[in-house]
Amino acid sequence: MSKILVIAEHDGSSLNPSTAKTVACAASIEAAEIHVVVLAAAAAAVAGEAAQLDSVAKVLTVEGPENEHALAAVLAPQIVALSAGYSHVFGPSTTFGKDLMPRVAALLGVNQISDIMLVLTSHSFKRPVYAGNAILTVEAPADKVVVATVRIASYAAVADGNNAAIESATVDAELPDHTRFVGVQSGATDRPDLQTAAKVVSGGRALGSAESFDIIYALADKLGAGVGASRAAVDAGYVPNEMQVGQTGKIIAPDLYLAIGISGAIQHLTGIKDAGTIVAINKDEEAPIFEVADIGLVADLFKAIPELTEALD
């Protein structure tokens, strides 16, 4: 039987949806007992949300002022101390998990598996490499703890409705003071979160300016969609970096993805290949995005997008 510890991602007040997806991956391992650990300054609210997730047997909380911000150097030794008795330690493949989990693995003296997209057995997994141009099957040693990140775009969140026990845990670990949180500048908006939105509208370099992104926002708001962008649009300064979709940005899997004025570089396609329906609107009928789009429209986006926004009334 596998005993799996999932590291909760949160912002201090609510659970990030990446956790429910990481739990879904853990639950796809046969006969798994899943515990979620919340490390926070005050864990009650986040732990309460985690306890509702299906498949979770127990929620552990580790509270302390040092856990107010998610610093990998501070969290990792605590997770190492907690990991005794677990066969697997999983985190999401978000910037939180990517920063943290390799540090946990190295402290445990094991390798880490990045971006699990499919569980074959308790120790055998599939993961993307080369920007998703190849899928690699890996096998972890049976006699060691498996530390991994989960590609959250590959999993649907587990349902709510559970009522798992919440237990406070104490850990005996020496914590470093060589890393200090200074601040975070967030472009937070009222729009749905890009990584978990059911619909996403993305704009590319063809928009030509930050101002013209307004037509993308207007369409997104009509659809109730999150907004993303290609790397070219981010590099050109039209939108902030956290909106980048692709190999080095966010990997997403919405039900509906609209690529507007995006040519479809392989690195961008990597970020959307699990989307339900891909719609492409581009002036260039040769654009590679049309090779993967379920619905394509060759058109001038400056005419087509306002028209589409209006037509959706």
């Binding site: 390798n111 899928i135 690699l136 099957t137 890996v138 972890a140 789009a293 379920d294």
Partner: peptide, 16 residues
């Protein structure tokens, strides 16, 4: 460490 068992091409999306 972790053993690389096999590489395979990804499933392709089809043109719509």
């Amino acid at each position: 460490g972790i053993k690389e068992v096999t590489y395979e091409p990804p499933s392709e999306r089809e043109r719509g």
